[in-house]
C-alpha cells in the first residue's frame, strides 16, 4: 500500500479547494446582500413613476406616444442580453443563453432579424464560440450596475426605436424571484405597454395641477420608464448572479467535504492494512526463529 502518500496529497489539495470555495461563497453572500439592498432601494422610484404615468394617462385621456406605437412593418428587433463577466456561478449564464437561443430561433423563424447587445464577458465568448454576430458587446458593468452605465444604452435603443430602425426591444436576463428561485426570462420593453408603464389604478385619483401640460410631461415620463425598466433588469441580474454563485460555491464546498471524508477513510484503511502487514511480518519472523 504505497499510495498512502498519494492519498495525503490529494486530501490536502481538496482541503485547499474547500478553503477557496468557502471563501468565494462567503464573498458571494456579502455581495448578494449588497446587491439585494441596492435592488430594493430602487423600488420606490419605479413605483412612483408608474403611479405618475397612470395619473397622467387618465388626465391626458388615453396614451399616445411614439414609444407605445407598434412598428409591425419593421422586421428587425433589438435584444439586450445580460450575462456575467465572471464564471463560477453554476448554470447562471448557460440558462440565460439557452433561452436567448430559443428566442433568436423563434424570431428568425418569424422572419425577424435580431440585433443582439451582449452585456458580460461570458455571453460574448459564448456567442463567439457559436459563431453568432453581436451588434454590440459591453463588459465591465460589474455587480453594482450604476444608472449612468445603463442610461446611454437605453437612450440609444429608444432612438433606434422611434426612428424606426427596430420594431421591438427585448431584454433577456435572470429574474430574481426569491433567494431560492431565479428564472431566466425574455421580456419585451418596447413597444411600451400601458400596463407596464402605468401600473395599477390608484384608489383615489388626485386632481393635479400640471406644469407643463400632461402630454408634455408624458413625453418625459415614458422614456424615463423605459430607462428604469432596463436598469431594473440590470440590478435584478446582478442579484441573481450573486445568488447563483453563492449556491454553486456552497455545492462545491459540500462536495469537497464529502471527498475529504472519503479520502480520509481510504487513507485510514490503507494505513491499517499496512500496520497489519507489518505485524504479520514480525509474527512470521518470530515464528521462524522459534
Amino acid at each position: 500500500m504505497a499510495n498512502r502518500r498519494v492519498l495525503v496529497k490529494r486530501r490536502n489539495s481538496t482541503r485547499n479547494i474547500r478553503k477557496i470555495t468557502r471563501t468565494m461563497q462567503l464573498i458571494a453572500t456579502a455581495r448578494f446582500q449588497a446587491a439585494f439592498s441596492r435592488a430594493v432601494a430602487g423600488k420606490p422610484y419605479t413605483e412612483k413613476l408608474a403611479q405618475l404615468v397612470g395619473g397622467l394617462a387618465r388626465a391626458a385621456e388615453g396614451l399616445e406616444h411614439p414609444l407605445m406605437q407598434t412598428h409591425d412593418e419593421v422586421h428587425r428587433e433589438a435584444l439586450v442580453v445580460l450575462t456575467s463577466d465572471r464564471g463560477l456561478c453554476g448554470g447562471y449564464n448557460a440558462n440565460v443563453l439557452r433561452l436567448v437561443m430559443e428566442h433568436l430561433d423563434a424570431r428568425a423563424a418569424a422572419g425577424v432579424e435580431t440585433l443582439v447587445t451582449m452585456i458580460g464577458g461570458k455571453g460574448i465568448s459564448n456567442f463567439a464560440f457559436r459563431g453568432r454576430e453581436l451588434a454590440e458587446a459591453i463588459t465591465g458593468i460589474g455587480d453594482a450596475p450604476r444608472f449612468d452605465q445603463v442610461e446611454p444604452i437605453a437612450n440609444r435603443l429608444m432612438d433606434d426605436y422611434t426612428s424606426g430602425e427596430i420594431g421591438a426591444l427585448w431584454v433577456a436576463y435572470m429574474k430574481f424571484i426569491s433567494a431560492g428561485k431565479q428564472a431566466p426570462v425574455v421580456e419585451k420593453i418596447l413597444p411600451l405597454s400601458y400596463e407596464a408603464a402605468a401600473g395599477e389604478e390608484p384608489a383615489s385619483p388626485v386632481d393635479y395641477e400640471f406644469s407643463p401640460s400632461p402630454e408634455e410631461l408624458l413625453d418625459e415620463l415614458l422614456p424615463a420608464t423605459v430607462r428604469v425598466q432596463l436598469f431594473q433588469a440590470f440590478t435584478d441580474a446582478a442579484v441573481s448572479e450573486q445568488v447563483s454563485r453563492m449556491v454553486a460555491m456552497k455545492a462545491a464546498t459540500d462536495a469537497a467535504e464529502d471527498m475529504i471524508k472519503r479520502l480520509t477513510m481510504q487513507y485510514n484503511r490503507a494505513r491499517q492494512t499496512q500496520v497489519t502487514m507489518e505485524l504479520l511480518d514480525i509474527v512470521g519472523g518470530a515464528n521462524a526463529l522459534a
Binding site: 441596492r38 432601494a41 430602487g42 420606490p44 422610484y45 419605479t46 412612483k48 450604476r146 444608472f147 430607462r227 428604469v228 436598469f231 431594473q232
Partner: peptide
C-alpha cells in the same frame, strides 16, 4: 420631502 433616484432614496 423625499428624493428618490433609480439607485437609492437619497
Amino acid at each position: 420631502l423625499s428624493v428618490v433616484t433609480p439607485e437609492a432614496a437619497v
